[in-house]
Design a protein around this nucleic acid. Structure first.
Lengths: 226, 226
DNA sequence: GTCTATATGACGATAGAC
DNA sequence: GTCTATCGTCATATAGAC
């Protein structure tokens, strides 16, 4: 649908290039001033044009935010799909698999902080992402659910707990790492970050907690969580 | 120092009342429009005065944010001190104690979302809280460290892992719950929230992971976390 | 078709009258 | 302590040059 086979003429190609340039510059500004610090005038200033000219490409500032949201969501989805596709059905433990997934997510978040804040928090008053911009995030969530189900079906995660519940706790864990790192140590790299370094230990804790119980082991109930 | 014994005269008392009214209204606006959506003009409008009149009480919009930050941090500290002081040295398990602490923190965060966003995230471009405004948060962090150390000294948490490391993982867990709830389900109450309801299970996982190991149990290493 | 020039109304902030 | 008047900047809209 969106991948139209019709070749783009010069004008359309030039227009797309300009749109990309606007988005690149907007991303720079958000990185410097904070997500809510983006201003249309500043984008125009850096491009050497007047603010009204930008309205040829984006009908409003929120439309610009929406394009940035869509771009960020696609970037994150692409980054995670690398991991989803890696070592398919390999004899990887739940812990190793979850570690790959969690680190990829946290790494992208730390290395794309402006996108992260726009995607995960609500920093811009009045801006709500459109359904189209949000679509890659929905797809990513579905892929992540499937990863949990896969691990359950391979007997690497307990299957007497709904995948949704495991995923909820998993997202809490990773969101916590990202939230703490971005809030308290945004200048630390992923490799050096105090909070990103906690991921292996946390994943080990998580994988142990949701491991398939050994047969005939009397376990403390997981039922009364609700 | 700050609790001056000098009685306030009428003028000073009236001034403080006005300051409190400004802060109350500002909090309302942040709740409706988002933290970055606060505007000096809107505060003045709701008070029935002109915007310049507010500059008698706050020299800038960021000073207003700073007062709100300080107020929020004091409110959170007070809420948590209720829990710190409760059942002192009681024969409470680590899990029960951590559950009380985590739920109190998350409850306050969910029930004071505007403060939470201001305190935990960075939604206002150019605003950095002053040292004085930040002080209650520093004190809260120190209290929380002491809670971990207490549990270690009472033999309820393993003491072969630095309290700082345990606290880091603990803050990640609670920050994750709060972050997910505020981002994805801000309208759900603490009691009904999909993410706040995950706290008991997560605390059980956490308390088990950091429980004092039974004697002569060969355990998977906690050392190679660094 | 894409830009410039220009205008409107809101914002944060300041100066000075009362 | 509150006001009016004012400034510079912002997002946004429109008219018209090329």
């Amino acid at each position: 649908m969106s991948a139209a086979p019709t070749p783009l003429d010069r004008r359309q190609r030039r227009r797309l290039e300009t749109v990309e340039e606007v988005l690149d510059i907007a991303l720079d500004i958000m990185g410097e001033q904070g997500v809510a610090g983006l201003s249309v005038g500043e984008v125009a200033r850096r491009m050497g044009i007047r603010p009204p000219s930008l309205y040829v490409y984006f009908p409003s500032k929120n439309a610009l935010y929406d394009a940035l949201f869509a771009r960020g969501a696609r970037s994150l989805l692409t980054a995670m799909q690398q991991v989803f596709a890696s070592s398919p059905r390999a004899a990887q433990s739940a812990e190793a698999r979850l570690l790959d997934l969690g680190q990829a997510f946290a790494r992208w978040s730390v290395e794309h902080q402006a996108y992260s804040q726009l995607l995960f928090w609500r920093p811009v008053p009045g801006f709500v992402p459109s359904k189209e911009a949000y679509a890659p995030a929905v797809e990513l969530f579905a892929h992540a659910t499937q990863q949990i189900v896969d691990l359950q079906q391979r007997g690497l995660l307990r299957d007497d707990v709904p995948a949704d519940d495991i995923q909820r706790d998993w997202t809490i864990l990773i969101a916590g790492v990202v939230s703490q790192q971005l809030s308290n140590a945004p200048e630390e790299s992923f490799a050096d970050g105090r909070f990103s370094q906690a991921i292996p230990g946390l994943v080990r804790m998580f994988a142990s907690h949701y491991a398939t119980p050994r047969r005939s082991t009397r376990r403390t109930s997981h039922v009364n969580k609700h």
